[in-house]
């Protein structure tokens, strides 16, 4: 008899598992869960393949060298040179790493080795909180605090005392700059580098440290000569993860770097990162030929770089954990 009401229909389906044997259910569950697992495992190559297919039109008519090193970006005239944007991304990311790495490592060492249990229990949730703040809120903070600070104080001070250094020379008066992007990104990657580096330092076997301490070394000497030596690969992996996060960040960066499509020559210049290029032009790209292929090519480039850093870092970390 065909079920007449929705409730009967649902009940009929719900009754099916009861009629199967428990072993059959177990096998079916294994199949289904395994299928989902494999599907998700294939997601990385699938995303890369989809982006590659969509970027295909431009990759076949333009040599890769021209795309990566061409300096003119003028979609209407069919000129698609990514160089200024790639450099924009690199400038902002490297600036953020220079700012973020030293304090992050110091905090990681402090948490792993020095902080009393009570202090750790207080600090770690706060750092997790920092990781949970949405990127657009970081952007708002950048616009409200970092950019005015650079415009009103940092840039004039640098201009007065350090203007003979080419890295600091700039005539950009707005404060929307590589430095602003670097500061905002640095705060965003603090939690990642701290969490991974702390774990890696913590994983160094205790006996090594105790041997060093027993020889009369101070805690810092032990850290410097024993623990960090042992943990160096993992610490580099932590930095790699931070780098790839900063490299792909979109919203916060695009709100504070100024988005001027020119290769920056100073940390006070504006920049135009790749991510901002994709986000800003997505709406209008459909009407211009090759435009969407170019933007998806940019997304593919972004993904490939991030993948390389991520996979290298993760493999290093997996190997470290297995050894300890």
């Amino acid at each position: 008899m065909a079920p007449s009401t929705p409730t009967e229909f649902i009940e009929k389906w719900l009754a099916i598992p009861k009629r199967l044997s428990r072993q059959t259910l177990d096998r079916l569950a294994k199949k289904w869960m395994g299928f989902q697992t494999v599907a998700v495992g294939m997601l990385v190559p699938l995303i890369a393949l989809a982006l590659l297919l969509r970027a295909q039109p431009i990759l076949t008519v333009r040599p890769l060298g021209e795309l990566l090193f061409g300096t003119t970006w003028h979609p209407i005239k069919q000129a698609f040179g990514f160089y200024p944007f790639i450099m924009g991304t690199l400038w902002v990311t490297i600036t953020s790493m220079i700012i973020a790495v030293p304090p992050s490592l110091m905090v990681a060492i402090y948490l792993a080795e020095y902080a009393p249990q009570r202090v750790r229990a207080l600090i770690k949730p706060l750092i997790d909180l920092l990781a949970g703040i949405p990127s657009v809120v970081y952007g708002v903070w950048g616009v409200l605090t970092v950019v005015p600070l650079i415009r009103n104080y940092v840039a004039p001070t640098i201009d007065r005392w350090l203007s003979f250094v080419p890295l600091f020379q700039s005539d950009n008066p707005t404060g929307y700059s590589v430095l602003a992007g670097g500061v905002v990104l640095a705060v965003m990657v603090f939690p990642i580098i701290i969490a991974v580096a702390e774990e890696v330092i913590h994983a160094v076997p205790r006996d090594l440290r105790e041997a060093s301490l027993a020889m009369g070394a101070t805690r810092w000497q032990t850290m410097k000569y024993v623990t960090l030596r042992k943990a160096v690969a993992g610490v580099i992996a932590a930095i790699g993860l931070g780098f790839s996060r900063a490299f792909g960040e979109t919203m916060a960066v695009m709100m504070v770097v100024g988005n001027v499509p020119k290769v920056p020559s100073s940390i006070l210049d504006s920049a135009y990162p790749l991510t901002a290029l994709i986000a800003n032009n997505y709406g209008e790209m459909m009407s211009v030929p090759l435009y969407d292929a170019a933007l998806l090519g940019a997304a593919l480039f972004l993904m490939v770089v991030v993948l390389i850093f991520n996979i290298a870092s993760r493999l290093t970390l997996v190997r470290l954990v297995q050894h300890s």
């Binding site: 995303i47 297919l53 792909g248 998806l296 997304a299 993948l307």
Partner: peptide
């Protein structure tokens, strides 16, 4: 372990790339 690695790598993929992929889908 391969799946765990794949998930960790997926975690690191920038959200704009997910946006572009989903848009393609």
């Amino acid at each position: 372990e391969v799946v765990r690695l794949a998930l960790d790598v997926l975690w690191g993929i920038p959200s704009i790339v997910y946006g572009a992929f989903a848009f393609t889908l």
